[in-house]
Design a protein around this nucleic acid. Structure first.
Lengths: 215, 215
DNA sequence: ATTTTTATAGACGACCGGTCTATAAATACC
DNA sequence: GGTATTTATAGACCGGTCGTCTATAAAAAT
């Protein structure tokens, strides 16, 4: 850093970036729209043109913001993972509720989220996971890591439930969290297929019942 | 039926069908190849040309055997459902094993089946379910019915386990079977993503543990 | 005026999608 | 044998869309 006053605008040379503030900048809009569309239709079946059209962004712009469709996909995975991690934290770290209730809260929220879009949109990570047969190989590890992250947050919440005496201390929270996410993704898939919340309810009922039974 | 001797060949007019017997007839080969490829890559991402090439069937033939790609897809769903139902029966109706063991046997067999293809192929029905966002609408009901069929067969097996005293009579076998299939499909998806049997083991371990716990 | 950076417009070539028509092959009819 | 009939294949076809790239406009600093 030099001696020049940093509060004074040291404007860079060319045309300034948008940052209108009025409404979302173009790149952000592409990401949002991309996530929305991919959660419904997956990656391979969707062309960038569809996303561009839906976002109201001219085609020429795309390759200014992203190097390729693959890079765009990676960005979407990261954005979705981040968005979802925040969502999990919001529920799982809510100290005003008993830990196990927080997990139930999340389930209800997720269910409401799917209902809002008529059970047409699922989980981006689950969708792309299913598509791995035709996806760029680097996606695999990224998606896997996302699941591990979500599981870790869930496991934390379950351990809090143990500390509270809500579930037995003999249970292995990591295993339980893994079990939850394996099954939950199955439930989301099924809910999308049936266009109904029933599979989400069926799975969560089963899961919580199993949690409360004692060996 | 007329009076003519049915044992005498009442040959039809034109060129006779293949039925070489030597190797599978063309249509059958298309179905087999189609199932193999779709279990790996899904429906939308695969063109008929790829299937044709892999089956060694000339492109011109396709529309002789099937009216459209959609009709072909329906045929594949039906073929796979049938194939899988037989597989379930083979395990679930094996009287030489205790009922619950039959379910374990199925799980092991399915795991071995996935391992045989390096966890690259999943479940056709699960794959297409995930893709419903871009699939012909009539597929939805077909896929859903396939799950109901598999669940019914599973529920039967669980009731046999109740009759044998292997699991409590208070359990609702229909619910359990539904829970199993929701989660199992999630496990298959995850196993495909991770290219590993671990998710299948994690889910089945959790499921059987839950089964044996008493309220 | 020129330079530099930001952003858009739209052409582009290649490829592949599913479909259809024309033809070959094999047999029965006359 | 020639023709009708059925089975199966060959390969053209055209439209769409894919991802990319080049040319240019816009805005500000020099």
């Amino acid at each position: 850093m030099s001696m020049t006053d940093p509060s004074l605008k040291p404007r860079r040379r060319g045309r300034p970036p948008k940052q209108d503030g009025a409404y979302l900048d173009t790149r952000e809009r592409l990401v949002r729209t991309g996530v929305a569309i991919l959660t419904e239709k997956g990656f391979s079946a969707v062309g960038i043109e569809e996303i561009l059209a839906s976002a109201g962004v001219p085609k020429g712009s795309f390759y200014y913001y992203f190097g390729s469709k693959e890079e765009f996909g990676s960005t979407l995975i990261a954005a979705y993972a981040e968005y979802f991690a925040r969502k999990l934290d919001r529920w799982f770290l809510d100290e005003s509720r008993p830990p196990l209730q927080r997990l139930r809260d999340f389930v209800e929220d997720a269910k409401a989220g799917m209902a809002r879009f008529d059970f047409r949109r699922g989980c981006l990570v689950g969708n792309l996971g299913q598509e791995m047969g035709t996806l760029p190989e680097p996606f695999r590890e990224k998606l896997h890591l996302v699941f591990l992250d979500w599981q870790a947050r869930t496991s934390s919440c379950l351990r809090a439930a143990q500390a509270d005496g809500q579930i037995g201390t003999d249970l292995d929270c990591d295993h339980l969290a893994e079990f939850f996410w394996i099954g939950w993704e199955g439930a989301v898939l099924r809910a999308k297929l049936e266009r109904s919340p029933a599979p989400l309810d069926a799975f969560s009922r089963g899961f919580f019942t199993a949690l409360h039974l004692q060996a």
